[in-house]
């Protein structure tokens, strides 16, 4: 059986170095299989986060040869095995150990987003009537598995560290899902503009490229939100109307 070399980042809280491991590879293997094999045979205390190993839970995010990916969905035959495969933790979040990062910030951001608020039920039995066409758009956003690869690759977070001012692509998608939810009656445009910093995104589409669920993050979520914010707060006509006391659109 063939062998391949894996350069895995080992260390704690930001300090560390690459360690090289040789391990046997078999047809169909994914990167997470190799990491597990190394863990079981050579490095018992290697820290890696994973759950389903089927691309559903979004736990095993890492940077493979510099590309943000799910380890469980990255086949070895898609990588050049004649040189070492590099595996590193995500960079936009505080490092914990080896391949594991601290994702608490993401959970804190989500809690700050005003929650779903449905309109009154349509039918006397307390249910709603919704057309499939109105569901489709939001269902795309609700495919998100919260792997946070989009957050990892977003330069506003990764390079500029604006975690306090910007919610990141994942939560723009989440907010878009709420704003476009056929039943939701709340309005999140003011916080989107202010504390969630939708304006900081300059549409480089890096997030869309890495999404393992192929959500059109930029085109379908972020740009429509930006447009809504612009229409509300920056459109000169709307501004004029507001000055003269007319109700907002």
């Amino acid at each position: 059986m063939a062998k391949a070399t894996f350069r895995i980042w080992r260390g704690e809280r930001g300090r560390g170095a690459f360690c090289e491991y040789d391990t046997e590879v078999a047809p169909g293997m994914v990167v997470l299989d190799a990491v597990h094999q190394i863990q079981a045979e050579q490095a018992g205390d290697l820290a890696v986060r994973w759950n389903c190993k089927a691309g559903r839970c979004g736990s095993c995010s890492a940077e493979i040869n510099g590309m943000p990916k799910l380890m469980c969905m990255t086949r070895l035959n898609a990588l050049a095995l004649d040189r070492p495969v590099t595996i590193e933790p995500m960079k936009a979040f505080p490092h914990v150990k080896d391949l594991v990062t601290d994702l608490a910030w993401n959970y804190a951001v989500k809690r700050r987003i005003p929650p779903f608020q449905p309109r009154k039920p349509d039918a006397p039995d307390g249910t709603w009537r919704i057309a499939q066409a109105d569901v489709d758009r939001v269902q795309e956003f609700r495919k998100c598995i919260e792997c946070y690869l989009c957050q990892d690759v977003c330069h506003v977070l990764r390079e500029h560290h604006l975690h306090e001012q910007f919610m990141g692509p994942r939560f723009l998608v989440y907010t878009a899902a709420l704003e476009m939810h056929p039943l939701d009656v709340d309005d999140r445009l003011a916080p989107l503009k202010k504390e969630f910093g939708v304006g900081l995104c300059n549409i480089t589409k890096c997030c869309t490229k890495v999404c393992p669920e192929s959500i059109a993050i930029t085109d379908n979520a972020i740009i429509p939100l930006k447009e809504r914010v612009v229409d509300r707060f920056f459109d000169p006509l709307t501004k004029l109307f507001r000055i003269f006391g007319h109700s907002e659109t």
Partner: peptide
């Protein structure tokens, strides 16, 4: 199941808009 819809779940729909 209906309660989940009130909490934001979006199930696939029938032709007349029900779950």
């Amino acid at each position: 199941v209906r309660e989940l819809e009130a909490w934001g779940a979006l199930f696939d729909r029938t032709g007349d808009g029900r779950i």
